[in-house]
């Protein structure tokens, strides 16, 4: 890595061309893709929510399924952003060489990366919002404050899209992404308060969880869905924003090194 790879991103609105190209491709597959994206989170919500929920009085002052709903909104956003920023972006970068075509046009790699980042966040935004809508339809969202969760979903998507793009910049093949899922995504699913309250964990694990972005997404979403603003809201937003900006910058430098040699 040289200083040139770390030069500040040169942002331009041309990134919208990349975003729009991906949207056009997705549009033709929108319905099956949306349903596929909803299946997983809903299985979690109903399977665990009703199955496990029967054995539990309430969790954190609400029914278990309502507790779960806020967590699953966040985890589904994480999953969707990660998949798009890794498997799909890698296929456009490395397999189909779509990025090469974009770079022969008057776009720069900075435009391409920003386009992919915002696209992956947009797609995950749809997944997270769909879960929120289903939860609301089931009466699991008691407060209109839940509206605030919508931009939060997008921010969460940006954070995980950035992390995914780092993996894509480093990846020699699709198989590489399994490590990230096994070592990062699955532990976050389990440690960040999606399925049970954080304070049930031993102290060192709680400390670790505080460093992970999903923890902060859940810590915001759950109270908001239930009508209260968490006291540390600014901190949670700052952590997510730092993850989004930091990971996007690292991904950009790594991708420049990979493609602009």
């Amino acid at each position: 890595m040289t200083a040139k790879h770390w030069s500040p991103p040169r942002l331009s609105l041309r990134f919208l061309h990349v975003w729009r190209r991906n949207l056009l491709v997705w549009r033709t597959l929108a319905i099956p893709s949306m349903l596929g994206n909803l299946a997983d989170p809903l299985l979690y919500m109903f399977g665990l929510g009703y199955g496990l929920g029967r054995m539990l009085e309430d969790v954190g002052g609400m029914s278990y399924i309502a507790f779960l709903a806020a967590g699953v909104i966040c985890s589904s956003t994480m999953m969707s952003a990660s998949f798009e920023a890794m498997y799909s972006a890698f296929s456009r970068m490395h397999v189909q060489k779509t990025w090469d075509a974009l770079l022969n046009a008057p776009l720069t790699l900075d435009d391409v990366l920003l386009g992919e980042l915002v696209w992956a966040a947009s797609k995950s935004f749809l997944s997270g919002s769909a879960v929120l809508i289903v939860a609301a339809a089931l009466g699991l969202v008691p407060s209109t404050l839940a509206i605030v969760v919508i931009p939060l979903i997008f921010l969460t998507g940006l954070a995980f899209a950035g992390l995914g793009l780092i993996m894509t910049a480093l990846s020699p093949s699709y198989d590489f992404f399994m490590y990230y899922f096994t070592l990062c995504v699955t532990p976050m699913m389990l440690l960040c308060g999606v399925f049970f309250p954080l304070h049930e964990l031993p102290a060192p694990a709680q400390l670790l969880a505080q460093a992970l972005p999903l923890t902060h997404a859940v810590a915001l979403a759950r109270p908001l869905v239930n009508g209260t603003v968490p006291p540390a809201w600014l901190l949670h937003i700052a952590v997510l924003a730092a993850y989004a900006a930091g990971s996007a910058y690292i991904a950009l430098a790594l991708t420049r090194r990979r493609l602009l040699q």
Partner: peptide
């Protein structure tokens, strides 16, 4: 380009 990168989608 040397190698086609038409958009298969």
């Amino acid at each position: 380009p040397q190698f086609d990168n038409l958009d298969p989608d």
